[in-house]
Design a protein around this nucleic acid. Structure first.
Length: 330
DNA sequence: TGGCGGATCAGGCAACAGTC
DNA sequence: GACTGTTGCCTGATCCGCCA
């Protein structure tokens, strides 16, 4: 780990590790940045201010970047991730595709397509968290020899472009392809989308204006039908349709066969149950006269007795079992 | 003492909840 | 409905500590 120059940072880093270990000892091994922040506030290490939070957050990003163990302690519940990926559905495909969207407002629009095409959906809510990026870098659920592709959808503005740049910078070293499907300058021109002036105070604005001019457009401005086609087309681009068809046909055959077997088994079970009932009833009826005497004796002497004790259970079961096996063979 | 690079600050993105 | 706070990230500009 690189040395931390400021005394404040050194102190906070030391206490951060101390508190994390204390939480681990107490059986808490996953928490949010905010939870940890307040643990340090409650110990008087930090003040409950925006400034302290931002400084602590920035320090934590650095510490997590350098220490995978520390990084693994955090969860992020604020930026939703929907795991709809289906290994069977994507069997034999060259790509593992995920949809990443900048804004939660469009979640409801993206979700049906994620479900339909069995791909994961990540809602960034601005910049994606270190936790979400770590999950992508870990590539836990990705089959071997499959290329990981992130299809990104965000605004065409200084921040939207920068979020895409940032995701790309973070994931590219991990052999992950990040593609901005929408919104691009070409799409803004092609669909004549209503522009707004980029925010002047944003430090990313000058660079953006220099490159594209004074134009910024929200992803929401795109007509839903066009956006729907973009999602569909971008997904299909990474899907081998013939392979999908083969798998779909194989799945269809399998499911039909299973259905038939289920139906046959259902009838067979009813039939077998009927045979077993008849034979068990017959055997128990044979044993009943003797059973009545035993029951009477038990009642008079005050003993508890169960039905299974009134006849030779093993003998009856063996008999019925053999009868049924004989029926099967015929 | 000057240069390098880390630290800090104040701006931004997003959505949602709570308050007035 | 407007405003504020929360959460987790980012940026560029400036400040400041360390080292040769």
């Amino acid at each position: 780990m690189k040395a931390l120059r400021s005394k404040w940072r050194k102190k906070v880093a030391r206490y951060t590790y101390q508190v994390v270990r204390m939480l681990n000892d107490a059986g808490v091994d996953r928490f949010t940045v905010r939870q940890l922040f307040y643990q340090l506030v409650s110990r008087g290490i930090l003040k409950s201010t925006r400034r302290d939070y931002k400084n602590f957050d920035a320090l934590l990003v650095k510490l997590r970047d350098e220490d995978p163990w520390l990084d693994s302690q955090f969860i992020d519940t604020s930026k939703p991730r929907f795991n709809y990926y289906d290994r069977m559905y994507w069997a034999g495909q060259k790509y593992f595709v995920e949809l990443w969207c900048e804004k939660d407002a469009l979640r409801g629009f993206f979700e049906p397509y994620a479900k339909r095409y069995r791909v994961n959906l990540v809602i960034c809510r601005g910049y994606p968290s270190v936790t979400r990026l770590r999950e992508a870098k870990e590539q836990r659920h990705i089959p071997p020899n499959v290329k990981y592709v992130v299809l990104y959808f965000g605004d065409f503005d200084p921040s939207g472009e920068d979020i895409f740049r940032w995701i790309n910078k973070e994931l590219r070293p991990y052999n992950i392809v990040v593609r901005k499907v929408a919104l691009t300058m070409e799409q803004v021109k092609k669909y004549r989308l209503p522009p707004r002036v980029p925010k002047k105070k944003d430090p990313r604005t000058p660079k953006f204006i220099k490159k594209y001019g004074e134009v910024a457009v929200e992803l929401d401005a795109l007509h839903p039908v066009i956006l729907r086609d973009m999602i569909r087309r971008s997904l299909l681009k990474y899907m081998d349709i013939h392979k999908r068809l083969q798998v779909e046909v194989a799945e269809g055959i399998q499911s039909e066969a299973v259905e038939i077997v289920d139906e046959v088994l259902k009838n067979l079970r009813a039939k077998l149950l009927d045979i077993a009932l008849r034979h068990v009833r017959h055997e128990i009826n044979l044993a009943l006269p003797k059973a009545y005497e035993m029951l009477l004796d038990a009642l008079e002497s005050g003993r508890d007795i169960s039905l299974k004790q009134l006849y030779d259970r093993e003998k009856v079961l063996d008999h019925v079992r053999n009868t049924m096996f004989r029926w099967f063979r015929t």
